[in-house]
């Protein structure tokens, strides 16, 4: 069973290369049986990218980490900002480019949030937000990042597991 899961993860890493075009995205995703469906406003990826649930504590680190999710670069999260006094380096300096993530789980379903993390451009074509789990459709990616996703599949799930608590 474990081997199957590992195999599946590998397949996903290799094959779940979410591309810019929605059609190609849908086609590829269907191939991977990710069950992507149109939500009322945005796309939704209902199943975990890894088959596992995420770890919110790890997710919090991913959100703060400047080399990983770096969600704080653009989003304020009031509940986490309160920790800034204790650990200013990690929690302070939340940016205001994107909307605050307070209450984000009330605005989007889990599947929609997952799709937004994977590739927000599917919902908002002009957004500045990077797609955190795609490897194709890029221009001039710097050597060490070539062919790689910004986040690993499980890291997306870790962040998601924290996001869904922001009600």
């Amino acid at each position: 069973m474990k081997a199957i899961k590992t195999g599946l993860s590998l397949l996903m890493l290799a094959g779940l290369t979410i591309v810019a075009s929605q059609t190609a995205f849908a086609a590829e995703a269907a191939m991977m049986k990710l069950e992507i469906s149109d939500g009322p406003a945005i796309k939704s990826i209902k199943k975990s990218l890894t088959g596992k649930t995420g770890d919110p504590a790890k997710g919090e680190n991913m959100m703060a980490n400047r080399k990983k999710g770096n969600c704080f670069a653009c989003h304020v999260i009031s509940s986490l900002a309160k920790k800034a006094a204790k650990n200013p380096k990690k929690y302070s300096d939340m940016g205001d480019i994107g909307p605050p993530l307070d209450g984000v789980a009330g605005r989007y379903t889990e599947g929609e949030l997952r799709a937004l993390l994977v590739n927000a451009k599917l919902a908002f074509p002009d957004t500045i937000m990077p797609g955190f789990y795609r490897t194709k459709g890029f221009t001039r990616v710097k050597g060490k990042f070539k062919g790689k996703t910004v986040l690993k599949a499980q890291e997306v799930e870790d962040i998601l597991s924290l996001l869904v608590t922001f009600k």
């Binding site: 480019i97 451009k121 002009d126 500045i128 990077p130 797609g131 890029f138 221009t139 001039r140 990616v141 710097k142 990042f145 790689k148 910004v150």
Partner: peptide, 16 residues
């Protein structure tokens, strides 16, 4: 748009 973060100059310096 360019790079793994897939942003253009305009995303930072015009829109934001």
């Amino acid at each position: 748009r360019r790079g793994q973060l897939d942003m253009s100059c305009a995303h930072c310096h015009q829109a934001n």
